[in-house]
Design a protein around this nucleic acid. Sequence first.
DNA 1: GCCAAATGTCGCTATGGTGGTTACACACTG
DNA 2: CAGTGTGTAACCACCATAGCGACATTTGGC
Lengths: 143, 143
Amino acid sequence: MSISSRFVVAVHILTLLETSGGKPTTSDWIAGSVNTNPAVVRRLLSMLAKADLTTSQLGTGGGALLARPASDITLLEVYRAVDEGELFALHNEAPNPACPVGRNIQAALQDTLTSAQRALEAELSHQTIAGVLAKVVACEETA
Amino acid sequence: MSISSRFVVAVHILTLLETSGGKPTTSDWIAGSVNTNPAVVRRLLSMLAKADLTTSQLGTGGGALLARPASDITLLEVYRAVDEGELFALHNEAPNPACPVGRNIQAALQDTLTSAQRALEAELSHQTIAGVLAKVVACEETA
DNA sequence: GCCAAATGTCGCTATGGTGGTTACACACTG
DNA sequence: CAGTGTGTAACCACCATAGCGACATTTGGC
């Protein structure tokens, strides 16, 4: 299967917040750009807030804000905030311990799988929300 | 979400086949080591056969065999054989084209996402079934 | 030729994750 | 105090997955 769309939507949300210029942005407004339900956006914002990537302002005129400069938020942080867990799933049922391969295959694979995951995460850690916004602007101008 | 357990189980199966020393291995036997249902194993073997990683021998005394030397089968090939598709899912509904961010976010992210996926795949392409079996043997000896 | 063994494949079911939707309590602004 | 917007829970529908059984087909041995 694939990584949930939460990651892409979360990056979308954070990029939107960066363009707001410090003004709180409502979940309704964000939902309009993402084309989904405001509650879905709030659910994601809740995860992002727990990861200290956003803050929220309650009451009239409230909304979401970036908790840190966009140039300081890496895509890896976003990924971990909304899509936690191991990338590779192991066997559902534990393999047969009576088989030499079965009782060692998971341990033998662990290094390989984690290094593959590290490679992906390293790539994500090189990109920031500010970088994404720059690309969005570039796309807008060349269009 | 995570990558389906098919990948890990497929590696398990191929490693088993390598240990069989050229004799056909039945799906029942494999299912015993993986601790699952023979039909599940046969479903995976069908995918692996389509990717030219295994062959099957029908009839009495039949079973599955590696189609190529284990040192020639990379984990990337296994991954692609059983877990096709893009690693990152995009928005379910297309973003709002009336929003500058919404209409460019997917194009802006594409490079980043594909390069992250490439990084993961590159790591998998450096490992072979023979290498996995070597690690299994090493685990067995140190245990 | 016939039987047993084994594959390839279909269909069904249960389960879990995901996203969409509504609803409502709470907090803040003016 | 009234209005606005968040935070969160509950519920639903959808989809992929894996487990399971069944059956036609092919092959080898007697």
